[in-house]
């Protein structure tokens, strides 16, 4: 008999891998991508494709140069690119999108040690850096194709209208749900995002804690402030952020109560920035802010072992 394998238990493992989880996230984002293409045209696909390809390329390149193990196969770079692309306006210059991918993958992710080591969400951080660097390009919103005759270059987002920054008519609730309004490629069609979020919940990739806490806080706070709560919930990147960005494993707490605190914090900061900040939208800043607090939230919410005395 040849040598038997001797190794530590357990000798069987669940089929779920990092790759299969990332693949589920990609699948869950497909409705939003399709909606984005339908709403904003073929260029939406081009922008997203450029982000995905450049993100994967930068991951491969960095690991090649640094002689690190190639982790392109775990699909996490593809997810980062996809999320970044969906968070950009459709008219963004392609070289700016590529710059964003480089920031996300090289600066935010790889320089901190690669997958699992970064403290900030790569797509979110890259988006924020693009927002302050390419301010005009990043806030040039196109209206969906179905709204014919509208001036696509200067059209206002519902948030800008709510904030009184721009004039215009608020879209109807149905338009908001379908995504017929100004905004980023992947953030406008709420129905598509909810389908994707439901998929992640059913596949147990995410738990309800963060999205419920995030969305609930935004709704309750805006209502309490006498704002139009429903529009605050449906506009901007709240739904996209709550289901897909504030649930990123590495940069958010892994404990159930930690997730609740994280979600509440995101909702709170989002509303504060929307009400009193310089920018009409605050989801990205809110999530980044909470990313920084994540290790401390985790420490505060350590689970108490079964039968364990208070530590």
């Amino acid at each position: 008999m040849s040598q038997l394998i001797t190794e530590v238990s357990p000798h069987i493992h669940d089929k779920t891998t990092v790759r299969s989880i990332m693949l589920d996230v990609i699948i869950a984002l497909m409705p939003a991508l399709v909606a984005g293409i339908i709403l904003f045209g073929f260029r939406a696909l081009l922008v997203v494709a450029v982000c995905v390809i450049s993100s994967v390329f930068f991951e491969w390149l960095f690991e090649l140069i640094c002689k690190k193990k190639n982790t392109v196969g775990d699909l996490s770079a593809a997810v980062t690119g996809l999320l970044l692309g969906l968070n950009l306006p459709v008219e963004i210059e392609l070289w700016q999108a590529i710059f964003g991918s480089a920031v996300a993958i090289i600066v935010v992710k790889q320089l901190f040690g690669g997958i699992g080591k970064n403290f900030a969400n790569p797509a979110i951080t890259a988006r924020i850096i693009m927002l302050v660097t390419f301010s005009s390009g990043m806030s040039r919103w196109s209206l969906p194709l179905v709204l014919e005759g509208a001036d696509t270059a200067t059209s206002a987002t519902p948030l800008a209208i709510l904030a009184g920054v721009s004039d215009g008519q608020l879209p109807s609730v149905w338009q908001m749900l379908l995504g017929v309004r100004g905004g980023c490629i992947g953030e406008t069609c709420i129905i598509a995002l909810l389908i994707g979020g439901a998929y992640l919940l059913i596949k147990r990739c995410i738990t309800w804690h963060t999205p419920v806490a995030f969305l609930g806080t935004v709704l309750v706070m805006t209502l309490a402030l006498g704002e139009n709560g429903l529009y605050h919930l449906l506009s901007g990147g709240v739904v996209l952020g709550a289901f897909f960005m504030a649930t990123d494993y590495t940069t958010t707490p892994c404990t159930p109560w930690g997730k609740v605190i994280f979600g509440v914090g995101c909702g709170f900061m989002t509303v504060v920035i929307r009400m009193w900040g310089m920018y009409p939208e605050g989801v990205s800043f809110a999530i980044l802010f909470m990313n920084i607090l994540t290790p401390h939230i985790e420490k505060l919410t350590l689970s108490r072992p079964f039968g364990g005395a208070k530590a």
Binding site: T16, V18, I21, T71, D74, S76, G113, G114, I115, G116, K117, Y249, T250, T252, C254, T255
Partner: peptide, 8 residues
């Protein structure tokens, strides 16, 4: 691979 802090 590296821990992704999924909490499973």
């Amino acid at each position: 691979g590296e821990c992704i802090n999924c909490g499973r």
